[in-house]
């Protein structure tokens, strides 16, 4: 079955992480959103990193499994 699960996981977490990190940036300094940590920015960046790592692994997996060029 040619379906690499890492790809949708990577896309989803890149999207979620990016959305939350940008939201955290946009609302930084606003007390409503902050134990005083800008957790949206911090955790959004972590999720974004995980998503990008999954996409990198997908890309490497495809490269490894693709037929050699002539």
């Amino acid at each position: 079955m040619n379906f690499d699960l890492r790809f949708p996981i990577g896309i989803m977490f890149t999207l979620f992480g990016g959305m939350i990190a940008i939201f955290g940036l946009a609302t930084s300094g606003n007390d409503i959103y902050t134990l005083g940590l800008n957790i949206n920015l911090i955790w959004g960046a972590v999720m974004l990193g995980f998503g990008l790592l999954m996409l990198l692994l997908t890309w490497r997996g495809r490269k490894k499994n693709s037929p050699p060029r002539r």
């Binding site: 979620f16 939350i20 939201f23 955290g24 902050t34 957790i39 949206n40 955790w43 959004g44 999720m47």
Partner: peptide, 10 residues
């Protein structure tokens, strides 16, 4: 208590 809008969605 701990999650602001944004992370609350997650």
């Amino acid at each position: 208590k701990y999650f602001p809008t944004g992370l609350l969605g997650v």
